[in-house]
């Protein structure tokens, strides 16, 4: 076990965990930030996507020991009132079905729009292909990303 000081959603937080613990479980079990979801544990589904210094990463593959001195943002931290343009677009298009993958989808989408404010269909496919939606909301996600791109 070791002490780590982490910056998550702009707050400084301390945890005492094994250095190999992935950020996914630090967030979920130790910091009660459960919006970041467990899906596969091998970076194949994207449900656990968070931002590390603004880039979308799979938190199931990010050990806590590599997260010190970085800025981490989770679904709980992308806006104060749930009114990020991507969140608003998700509601406008009524995207979710079961909803489980959507936090990861939104984290990938927000990272995409930050680096590419008006993505093409191909850009969206490339940026989002790591995020599985088992319910099949892909066409709505694409439409929502385009709406968010217009309003941002």
């Amino acid at each position: 076990m070791a002490q780590y000081n982490l910056t998550i959603n702009g707050k400084s937080l301390n945890v005492d965990v094994d250095p190999s613990t992935p950020m996914l479980w630090v967030l979920r079990d130790h910091l009660d930030l459960v919006g970041t979801k467990f899906g596969c544990g091998i970076a194949q589904c994207g449900a656990c996507t968070i931002h590390l210094n603004g880039n979308a990463v799979r938190s199931c593959q990010l050990p806590v020991s590599a997260a010190e001195n970085t800025e981490i943002t989770t679904i709980e931290g992308i806006s104060e009132n749930g009114d990020h343009p991507v969140q608003k677009a998700w509601l406008e298009h009524d995207v979710p079905q079961c909803g489980y993958c959507q936090a990861g989808q939104i984290m990938s989408a927000t990272a995409l729009l930050k680096s590419n404010p008006s993505p093409s269909d191909e850009d969206i496919d490339n940026a989002m292909n790591g995020n599985i939606c088992r319910c099949g909301t892909y066409t709505r996600i694409k439409a929502a990303i385009k709406t968010a791109a217009k309003s941002a």
Binding site: L33, V34, G35, T36, T74, I75, E76, S79, G82, Q87, W90, L91, D94, P96, G99, Q102, A103, I106
Partner: peptide
């Protein structure tokens, strides 16, 4: 709209 929509997009 989905009554849980806002909870889903904010990770509740």
């Amino acid at each position: 709209k989905n009554v849980d929509g806002s909870k889903i997009v904010t990770g509740k």
